[in-house]
Amino acid sequence: MEYHFRKAKIAEIPSIWAILQLAIERRKKDGSNQWQDGYPNPDVVQKDIEKETGFVLTDGETIVGYCAILINDEPEYAKIEGKWLTNDDFVVFHRVAISEAYLGKGCAQKMMEHIEDFARQNTIYSIKADTNFDNFAMIKIFEKLGYTFCGHVYFRGGQRKAYEKMLVKFF
């Protein structure tokens, strides 16, 4: 399979939302309260795309994953209970979701590798992210890819595990 990573288009919102809805349902079935409060929703996805921060992973023409990528744009991270590895510029990603048909094929990891490439292309060498304490699949991916647990942050009243990865600079 030849995966591609690119900015999402407004016309793709229905496909992206279908992937997110199933991911929301998966979190619920796993007994998690993550994404069970009306977030994310189609309006959030539309705003991501309008701000050019929404990205898709594709297999040919098929959208297999979605995420939002921002630079230095997560106010809650300033209030971390713990300590980040760096205080430099950072890339942050949110709303990672993979299509049901592509689960278990390494797509989330592939997407995160593209996020690292995005950071390097913008000469940023820190990636920060967070996940719910019970999102064991995402925590496992963070650990596998060399992210460091840095503490806790809070979103919509819920505590989240915060991670950072420092990228190697290529000269």
Rank of each mutant, 00 (worst) to 15 (best):
E74I: 00
E74S: 04
P75N: 02
P75S: 03
E76D: 13
A78W: 09
A78R: 08
A78V: 04
A78C: 00
K79I: 00
K79E: 15
E81A: 10
E81I: 12
G82V: 09
G82T: 09
K83T: 11
K83F: 12
W84M: 05
W84E: 07
W84D: 08
L85G: 11
T86N: 12
N87W: 04
D88S: 13
D88H: 10
D89M: 03
D89P: 04
F90Q: 02
V91A: 02
V91S: 03
V92I: 14
V92K: 03
F93R: 00
F93D: 00
H94D: 10
R95H: 15
R95G: 07
V96C: 10
A97M: 13
A97D: 07
I98P: 03
S99G: 04
E100G: 00
A101P: 02
A101L: 10
A101Y: 13
Y102R: 03
L103Q: 15
G104F: 06
K105Y: 14
G106M: 03
C107Q: 09
C107R: 02
C107H: 06
A108K: 06
Q109S: 14
K110T: 15
M111K: 05
M111Q: 11
M111G: 02
M112N: 12
E113S: 05
E113H: 12
H114E: 15
H114R: 11
I115R: 03
I115W: 09
I115Q: 07
E116M: 11
E116G: 01
E116C: 05
F118K: 06
A119H: 09
Q121N: 14
